[in-house]
Design a protein around this nucleic acid. Structure first.
Length: 430
RNA sequence: GUGGGCGUAGCUCAAUUUGGUUAGAGCACAAGAUUGUGGAUCUUGGGGUUGCGGGUUCAAUUCCCGUCGCCCACCCCA
């Protein structure tokens, strides 16, 4: 588990702000639930046989001997909360988003932490408009995820889709797959033989070389051809030019998924290249004691998203620098010090971050300091400026005297708002 | 849960092969050269329980045992 320190936290604040703006604009409301839940919640939702439940949860008994678990994902917690608080009694459907820490006790690896963070969204009990039915909601959640990642600045987004089949057919599909793999059992690795007993779909995740021929020859298509709904969804994605690939071997490790599932991968993440994943889960609410509630949702790994963004474009977080002004008074006259304090106060009152050295020192020392602090703009203030009724705004991103501008100081005195808005405009332009 | 690798200054590493003086360097940090224009250079300075515990030895960063942590991959997921 990791500390997130100043210098790094700005990136997190940046992506969190983007997420809030984006999801609120799409009609989603934030939900926050406790990190601790009864273990039973995750066993019933994610599934007893899943890797997450049987070997990756931080679980313990509390003082009342209750079995508690630190949440390994958020969908089950959201469902629990919606059912418990009766949110669907006062509104027919819900659009919720969340962000926060999740916990899985795995062996660490590139792009994998035991405490990691997710941003996710769920569309709950929203029926699509006929004649497309629920497929419109599936399309919307996929498009939402895709557009958000674009908005965050991610490039080369690879979207993979699969259709796990309609509920009515699921038992049949599993049975058929089990029959097929049982015949080939001798050719499968130990893990796959275990999966055959516990959860046959997961066999498709196997990367062992010797298993591949058997997996590739699995007659998926004859048992579970792509449904009409799936075709409707891909047609919609085609129409808005969201590229995707159909991957019949994409199965997910959380048992509550049915119907369409999806995953997004990005480059630069090592072996753990999945940035986001999700899908339809129509039976979770009923399994947890609620009523029949069709749902779909996704979650994004924040650590992986930040890594991918930085790998693709190392300059992407530079913009964070611009929201700050350095004040450089370098002559110790009463007039300079008085002006210095006026500017400092005025800027801070307008919530512009101001950096400065506590003591008066040479201009070159000030500039050096401003540069170290990663500040973009410097307000230069000396006796000459006082005399000229001007102040110098220096843009450090430009070399030499190129990025300097003079502002009439009377303007600043008579209307501080105009100076602040001048600076704010400069900052947002960056 | 499985396999491999690594723990020495804030960071990246050297010294360990063959045990031997005060554990070094670069970067970063602090002060100055430098009181009107930054990222450079030079000088000086502060920084270490060599992951932790035990053992062998006159002597352990170095050898042995244990332990903890981290990294990479598998499994699986974000």
């Amino acid at each position: 588990m990791e500390d997130i320190l100043p210098g790094e936290i700005e990136k997190w604040q940046w992506i969190e702000e983007k997420a809030r703006i984006f999801f609120e604009a799409h009609g989603f409301k934030e939900i926050r639930t406790p990190i601790l839940e009864p273990t039973e919640l995750f066993v019933r939702s994610i599934g007893q046989a899943s890797d997450i439940v049987h070997k990756e949860m931080f679980s313990f008994k509390d003082r009342g001997e209750r079995d508690m678990t630190m949440r390994p994902e958020m969908t089950a917690s959201v469902a629990r909360s919606v059912i418990e608080k009766g949110l669907l009694k006062t509104s027919k459907s819900l659009r919720l988003y969340y962000m926060g820490p999740m916990f899985r006790a795995e062996r660490p690896q590139a792009g994998r932490k035991r405490q990691f963070h997710q941003i996710g969204a769920e569309i709950i009990n929203e029926k699509g408009h006929s004649p497309d039915g629920d497929t419109h909601v599936d399309y919307e959640i996929i498009a939402l995820l895709y557009r958000f990642l674009q908005y965050a600045g991610l490039k080369n987004i690879q979207l993979n889709l699969n259709d796990l089949g309609e509920e009515a057919d699921r038992a049949k599909i599993r049975k058929s797959l089990s029959e097929y793999f049982s015949k080939e059992k001798a050719k499968l690795c130990k893990d796959c033989q275990w999966r055959l007993e516990k959860n046959v779909l997961r066999i498709f995740d196997c990367k062992i070389h010797d298993c591949q021929p058997v997996l590739n020859k699995a007659p998926w298509e004859s048992f579970a051809p792509l449904s009409n709904n799936f075709k409707l969804i891909t047609a919609k994605l085609d129409s808005v030019e969201i590229p995707y690939a159909v991957n019949r071997r994409l199965v997910r490790g959380l048992d509550y998924y049915n119907g369409i599932v999806f995953e997004i991968t990005a480059e630069g993440l090592g072996a753990q290249n999945a940035v986001a994943g999700g899908g339809r889960y129509d039976h979770l609410y009923k399994d947890l004691g609620g009523s029949d509630t069709p749902c779909t949702g996704f979650s994004i790994g924040m650590e992986r998203l930040l890594v991918a963004l930085e790998v693709q474009n190392p300059q992407i977080f530079e913009a964070i620098k611009t929201h700050c002004v350095y004040l450089a008074p370098f002559e110790e006259t009463p007039e300079v010090l008085k002006k210095f304090n006026e500017y400092k106060l005025a800027l801070r009152e307008r919530r512009i971050r101001v950096e400065t050295l506590a003591r008066v020192c040479s201009l070159s020392t000030h500039l050096k300091k401003a540069n170290q602090l990663g500040v973009r703009f410097v307000l230069i203030l000396g006796a000459k400026e006082i005399g000229n009724q001007k102040v110098i705004v220096k843009d450090l991103s430009k070399k030499g005297l190129e990025g300097q501008e003079l502002i009439n100081q009377e303007l600043i005195n008579s209307d501080i708002n105009s100076v602040v808005s001048y600076l704010k405009e400069k900052m947002t332009l960056c």
